[in-house]
Simulated scan of single mutants.
Amino acid sequence: MGGAKTTAGWQRIALPDADVALWPHWLDPAEADALFAGLQHAIAWETHRIRLFGRELDSPRLSCWIGDPGAGYTYSRTRFEPRPWPAALAVLRGRLEQACAARFNSVLANLYRDGDDAMGWHSDDEPELGTRPVIASLSLGAGRRFRFRRRRARGEPARPGDTSELLLPHGSLLRMAGATQRLYRHDLPRVRGLAAARINLTFRCIDTSAH
């Protein structure tokens, strides 16, 4: 995607009517390496069940929902109660809040074991997140393509430029805010022949008052 503008490490992504920015090297390589290695063992990875076209299937990645007490989350009709914060993520949360000028009380950790693990088109627009959520997505390990596609009304034809993509490298931080989740879907496509793993940490703030 063109038109990137850099401010204090952030590169604003030219996505119409959205608020998206990428900090390509938010963590230095040595810290990113250590965090990646540590989280592989510190997080209780599990296979989440998702509902797709009326069927329940295993999610094509390993995941763990982590957060403050009461920060439960409902996704694909399944309720997830948070596991306690690993020490490394508890420390990282404060730094992310400062970088993104936002508050986070939870994180969805995802482990993509190789290029066959992926995630289809979706938006992080669950009611617990509010109407204009700030999502901070930290990537560790193998760099992967990340795509945005503008939402279309039923029956509306696709238009040139509806889909854009960028690369999320090791140690990068992606910030999605404003109307991004309402106007766009995103996915992480499969990569043929990729043997390396990737960990993705998507920090967010759950509205616990609704529970």
Rank of each mutant, 00 (worst) to 15 (best):
I206L: 06
R132N: 12
D187H: 00
H25W: 06
G141H: 15
L129H: 09
L140H: 04
W45N: 07
L129S: 10
L35H: 01
R77I: 06
E128T: 01
T7V: 12
G115T: 03
H211L: 14
G70P: 10
G70L: 07
T163Q: 15
R61D: 15
R51G: 11
Q181S: 05
L129N: 05
G193Q: 13
G143S: 15
D116G: 14
P133N: 01
H170A: 10
T7K: 12
G9H: 11
A179Q: 12
P133L: 00
P86Y: 02
P84G: 03
E165S: 15
L138P: 05
A30C: 12
A210I: 12
C100I: 01
R12A: 15
R198N: 04
L89G: 00
P157H: 06
L62H: 12
P16R: 04
A99E: 08
H48M: 06
L201G: 07
R185K: 12
V134P: 05
A34E: 04
G141A: 06
R182P: 00
R154D: 13
S172C: 11
I50K: 03
H170E: 12
T78K: 14
A136M: 04
L27D: 13
C205F: 13
R55S: 02
L201K: 08
K5H: 13
T6P: 10
D162T: 03
E81Q: 11
P24H: 11
W85F: 00
A142S: 04
P29R: 10
F203K: 04
L167Y: 09
C100Y: 06
F104C: 02
S63W: 05
I50T: 00
D114I: 02
P29I: 00
L173M: 00
P127H: 08
N110A: 09
T208D: 09
W10T: 00
A21T: 05
W65G: 05
A210Q: 13
L194G: 14
A42E: 09
A37V: 11
S172I: 08
R113P: 03
R175F: 04
T47F: 03
A142Q: 15
L111Y: 02
G193N: 09
N105A: 08
A101Y: 10
F36P: 03
L167N: 07
L62W: 10
R77W: 13
S139C: 10
L168S: 06
G130K: 02
L194H: 12
E46S: 09
R132K: 15
L194R: 15
L108C: 05
Y73T: 09
R103S: 14
A109G: 00
R175Y: 07
L89N: 08
K5S: 14
A109K: 04
G67F: 04
D124I: 08
R154H: 14
D28V: 08
L89W: 01
H41V: 12
S137V: 15
G72N: 09
N110E: 07
R55Y: 01
A44V: 02
E56F: 09
V191N: 10
P60T: 04
E31Y: 12
R147F: 04
D114F: 11
G94K: 07
A195D: 12
R147K: 04
F104Y: 08
Q11T: 03
D162F: 08
A34G: 06
W10R: 01
D19S: 08
G38A: 13
